[in-house]
Amino acid sequence: MRKLFKNKAALWLIVLVIILGIAVGILNATKNDTTIFENVTNIIVTPVQKLFTNIGHGVSDFFGYFSDVDKLRTEIDALKAENSELKKEINQNESSRLENEQLRKLLNMKQGNTEFELEAASVIARNPSNWYNTFTIDKGAADGIALNQPVVASGNALVGRISEVGTTWSTVSVITDSEHAAGAQIVRSGEFGICEGDSGLAADGNLRLSFVSKNANIIVGDTVVTSGLGGIYPKGLVIGKIYKIRPDIQGISQYAVITPETDIKNLCAVFVIKNPLD
């Protein structure tokens, strides 16, 4: 080991790395803009990543098919029996279906007036590092995507926000990321809090509801939505359900563990809200 440090170049390199590393860390702490090099690299890389992601899904579906073959055989028999029963029921339910269809049309019309302007996007890559919970989507500035636009899954379930925008790609910082925070409200009681990513909880796919007073009216199973405070997220996007309630270290407040409404790790497609605060 002494031989290693006999060479002054090695020692100088270590010193240089420490200085440069700290400088880079400080300079990038508030970085929001995408550099031209990042943009060009990702424009080239993202189409190939998209291809690889699709191949990956194909391979996993293929092997999944073979592993499930026995299970499927028994399921087919059960389904055949169920099928004949259902055919009888279909005839009986025809009138109900027509009524349902009409109601659905009315509901869609109503939603059409108040819904957000959504841009559908595919998830093409995850962050290569274990330090960040972000993923890349195949839509960018060319599709009208802008910084901080909220990202949701079906059912207006909050996924995160746009944290970086390239020409044909964007990065989504997900709600479980440690750099992510959003104003939150409990639907049942109206209590407010801050929903934030926590490195300890992120591994299980959960996040934290902080700044909840000790006497706040919260129970396990409560639904948590965005409060609309903070200027990024509109009110009412579903964050998730309370899974655990714990006292804070100081004992003057408490925090809750939230299980997100959507399975973020296995998302394939999302929607970007292009007019969140209209």
Binding site: N28, S129, S163
Partner: peptide, 11 residues
């Protein structure tokens, strides 16, 4: 790798 991660450029 920094370009793809998009954070702490140069680290």
């Amino acid at each position: 790798l920094d370009f793809v991660i998009g954070k702490a450029l140069g680290l």
